[in-house]
Design a protein around this nucleic acid. Structure first.
Lengths: 332, 332
DNA sequence: CTGTTAGCGCCTTCAA
DNA sequence: TTGAAGGCGCTAACAG
């Protein structure tokens, strides 16, 4: 039982390949009902399935979209993908998912592969600081949507979907002041200039200046949990007034909780504890952790829709900010 | 600037298409260094990228693998995918990811699309109870690996990777008895016969019989949290002896924690609390929740490796059980 | 070491 | 309402 082609179907049905092709593509206009029936029948009999690759040769689109995320084992990425998929699949697109491991080199390699696959569009959580490595995509006229991270020197017309990280952080800082917190300590894992974390730091800094609080960031990238513990201990021990500690990404919260336990710091008594997190598990830690939550699924949704619009040449708004949700819990 | 083809490169480099083709495919054996250089140069100059679809027409493989998971927003699925991807991508395969939403209909539709895309192999977290809907895959000689769920009437030679759900549950029941627990209540969300949850129930039941404990399952699929609360309350209120409550899947643990809080049940004092969960967030709830943890990433790894072996016609062991890890915490 | 050429399966213009 | 035929970009005989 070899590969069955459109010709096989045509022969078996006693019609021409053209007719079969028309049938496949839903061009029923010029086709008698009898023919239609017969073709349909033969197709199911022979288990015929048209081959996408052959199709792609003749058309100049592939009905495939490439998605490159930073780390699919991350809740953010997987929810983002879900949002994307739920829009693209019903629209008739198959999705090639690639995982860049937050590495620019891997990412560039994957982009090359997606080019080779002739995807009709690209949704990208970029790893590079600047837009330069993505210039080629624009040059190739390939519809593109950037998600979650803004690159520097990015042309105005590049569609982008990010969280309102700066605003949410800024507002929270001001609110913290109004609740009597005089010091803010943020804890990040990486300081990549373009990362969401940097925007958050910037937001808190701006808010702290405005509200006359102190603001420090602890960068844990090259340190272990002990280091964090020491830093936190010395900061808080030597400080007068209420301190709020903010985890700038989900995984950091794990570290922070461990450290608090070791240091016998309770919240909201000893410190205020806040975290950015895209997952609500922490509502079961004590009376819950105060959360700033992105909306990755919504972001995926919006990004996919923008991509489709680009493919259909519909003009789009290029920069979209998705609000960060505040989940109020007793840790503050 | 139109599509640049292999012919364009050939012309520009002053060689034949064959030579270019050979170069692309790494057939350097019969090629002078000068030619090689020239072709390389021209390719980069022209930004040439070979088109996968044209290639696929000539070869009978696509270098693409289809993966269908139940719910990508689930930690299990996303870690599973990561495991798969980390093996397949380095091996030169691109991965088409599909999300069946745990629906058989969606899944079948997606399988059809993957056929159309002529994937070289399939990794599937199946939704059907029986193997029948997947018969066609076998008939089409398409390499296939089933993950996470066993179907009924499944041919012996179908490669499968599942967690050792039964054994882990069985052993835990026995252990519970030895710790003085006389009653086991499991809480599930669905009772799909082939689901991992059913295997777990079976394991606990077998262990309970062996150790002379009572064993009840609470099926929450068509009920709300209130119902669960009432059930649990009445069971525990009317019971003499220690009771262990087991969440059979991660999300159920959320419900259970909420219910415990409402009923003022503490663990391990009032009840023993245990959960299957593929995510370790719960270590920060009180002194941590006792966990039975699958190893989705490892499962993906193994599944992908099995698939590659099938593609290379290497004989494989068809059924593999991946051990469930026990994370001992104070909730027991 | 290099080139010529025949298809792979499908869509689409053109003709009937 | 249907069919015939060319060609999409690439690979792999086969021929130098």
């Amino acid at each position: 039982m070899k590969n069955v082609t459109i010709a096989d179907v045509a022969k078996a049905a006693g019609v021409s390949v053209t007719t079969v092709s028309r049938f496949i593509n839903g061009n029923y206009k010029k086709m008698s009902d009898t023919t239609k029936q017969r073709v349909q029948q033969t197709i199911t009999n022979l288990h015929y399935a048209p081959k996408a690759s052959a199709r792609k040769m003749r058309q100049d689109f592939s009905q495939m979209i490439g998605v490159v995320v930073g780390d699919i084992s991350n809740v953010f990425s997987s929810l983002l993908f879900k949002g994307i998929y739920d829009v693209l699949q019903p629209a008739g697109y198959d999705v090639l998912l690639m995982n860049s491991n937050n590495s620019l080199i891997t990412e560039q390699n994957e982009l090359a592969r997606l080019f080779t696959q002739q995807v009709d569009g690209l949704i990208l959580q970029p790893n590079a600081k600047t837009f330069t490595p993505y210039q080629q995509i624009q040059t190739a006229q390939l519809p593109l949507v950037m998600v979650d991270r803004e690159t520097l020197n990015q042309p105005q017309d590049v569609a982008t979907v990010v969280s309102s990280n700066f605003d949410a952080s800024h507002q929270l800082a001001v609110r913290l002041a109004s609740q009597g917190y005089q010091h803010i300590i943020t804890v990040s894992r990486t300081l990549a200039e373009t990362s969401a974390q940097s925007k958050r730091i910037a937001g808190f800094t701006a808010g702290a200046i405005q509200s006359q609080q102190t603001m420090t960031n602890l960068e844990t990238a090259h340190h272990d949990r002990n280091w964090l513990q020491q830093q936190l201990h010395s900061k808080i021990a030597t400080t007068i007034g209420k301190t709020a500690v903010v985890s700038l990404m989900g995984p950091v919260l794990f570290d922070l909780l461990a450290v608090c336990r070791s240091l016998h710091l309770t919240f909201p008594n000893d410190i205020g504890l806040i975290s950015f997190d895209d997952w609500t598990w922490s509502q079961y830690v004590n009376d819950g952790i105060f959360l700033l939550q992105q909306q990755p699924e919504l972001m995926g949704h919006v990004a996919a829709e923008k991509l489709l619009q680009q493919i259909q040449q519909t003009p789009i708004t290029t920069m979209t900010y998705i609000p960060v949700k505040t989940i109020e819990k007793a840790s503050l």
